[in-house]
């Protein structure tokens, strides 16, 4: 696992990612008690290990896209931009969600628009 900040995570990924040796798996976000974080997953063909690059992000902060280093990364970035409401450079609106769906459904909102869904869960 590699810890990184918003300033230097692109450099770290550039150092890590060699297309023939490292496979890009995906990008994921997680909202914990400490706040929002973006994780980039890689798989190394040589050591057969899954490597995670963790970047902590504040709400509303702009995250640069890594698709200039890792070409297929744009899809995963647009996905977390839709699901978590993270501002990512070059994103396309409503790529993953339909236009009339609730915004950022995977954030832990306190009794807001996804209240209905949670009440169903409690049943």
């Amino acid at each position: 696992m590699i810890e990184a900040s918003l300033m230097d995570f692109k450099d770290k990924i550039r150092k890590l990612y060699i297309p023939e040796k490292v496979h890009y798996i995906g990008v994921d976000a997680y909202e914990g008690e400490e706040g929002l974080e973006v994780r980039y997953w890689f798989f190394s063909y040589e050591t057969r290990d899954v490597v995670m690059v963790r970047v902590s992000v504040k709400h509303g902060e702009r995250v640069p896209s890594i698709s200039d280093i890792v070409k297929p990364a744009f899809m995963g970035e647009w996905e977390i931009a839709d699901l978590f409401g993270i501002e990512i450079e070059g994103r396309v609106e409503n790529f993953f969600l339909s236009p009339d769906s609730p915004r950022a459904p995977l954030l832990n909102k306190k009794k807001s628009e996804d209240q209905a869904g949670r009440e169903m869960g409690e049943k």
């Binding site: 790529f95 993953f96 769906s101 995977l106 869904g117 949670r118 169903m120 869960g121």
Partner: peptide, 17 residues
């Protein structure tokens, strides 16, 4: 391309329901 047609929120349901 646009893949926004079949999102069913299964990841969300796994962490709530």
């Amino acid at each position: 391309f646009d893949v926004s047609y079949v999102h069913r929120g299964i990841e969300k349901s796994l962490t709530t329901m």
